Computed example of a mutant assay.
Amino acid sequence: MNKPLPTMQQAAQEAEFQLCAAKDVLEWQHALIKAIHLDHLHGDGEGIGTLFEVAKYFSDTGFGGVYSAIDEFRELGESAPQNAQLENVARESGGDQ
């Protein structure tokens, strides 16, 4: 990772943003499913092709930021000091006394 690690606050803000974005996409997909169902029941399926295109667009583009954020959080977690490392640093600096 070439960029500096985000602070915990920055990581939490990014996580919140990505979760809200994912929630929005899921709500839009739910609305599309309902519209497809209603079109099937009351419109003889005339609009289903167009509704499927919108659903495909959401599927293709909706979660790109979520996937990249997951990768970023994984890198952050792998690079963060573990409990044993923190204990060693405290002992070496005399923080245990």
Rank of each mutant, 00 (worst) to 15 (best):
M1L: 06
M1V: 05
N2K: 09
P4C: 02
L5M: 14
L5C: 08
L5E: 12
P6V: 00
T7P: 06
T7N: 05
T7G: 09
Q9T: 08
Q9W: 08
A11H: 03
Q13D: 14
Q13V: 06
E14G: 07
E14C: 04
A15Q: 09
L19V: 03
C20R: 13
A21K: 10
A21G: 00
A21E: 06
A22D: 07
A22H: 10
A22Y: 10
K23R: 12
V25R: 01
L26F: 14
L26S: 15
E27M: 10
E27C: 10
E27D: 13
W28E: 14
W28P: 06
W28Q: 14
Q29C: 11
Q29A: 13
H30F: 01
H30C: 03
A31G: 15
A31F: 09
L32T: 10
I33N: 12
H37R: 04
H37N: 04
L38D: 11
L38A: 05
D39T: 02
H40P: 00
H42S: 04
H42V: 04
G43D: 07
D44E: 14
D44W: 00
G45Y: 00
G47S: 09
G47D: 07
G49E: 07
G49L: 02
T50A: 05
T50G: 05
L51M: 13
F52C: 13
F52K: 12
F52D: 09
E53V: 07
V54I: 12
A55M: 11
Y57W: 04
Y57I: 03
Y57G: 04
Y57V: 02
F58P: 01
S59I: 08
D60M: 11
T61Y: 04
T61E: 07
G62Y: 02
G62Q: 03
G62M: 04
F63T: 05
G65L: 03
Y67P: 00
Y67T: 09
S68M: 09
A69P: 00
A69D: 00
I70P: 00
I70Y: 03
E72Y: 03
E72C: 08
F73E: 08
E75R: 06
L76E: 04
G77Q: 01
G77S: 04
G77W: 01
G77T: 01
E78W: 14
E78Q: 15
E78F: 15
S79Q: 10
N83D: 09
A84I: 12
A84S: 13
A84G: 09
Q85A: 12
L86K: 01
L86A: 01
N88K: 14
V89L: 08
A90V: 15
A90H: 13
A90E: 15
E92M: 08
S93V: 04
G94S: 05
G95H: 11
Q97G: 11
Q97Y: 10
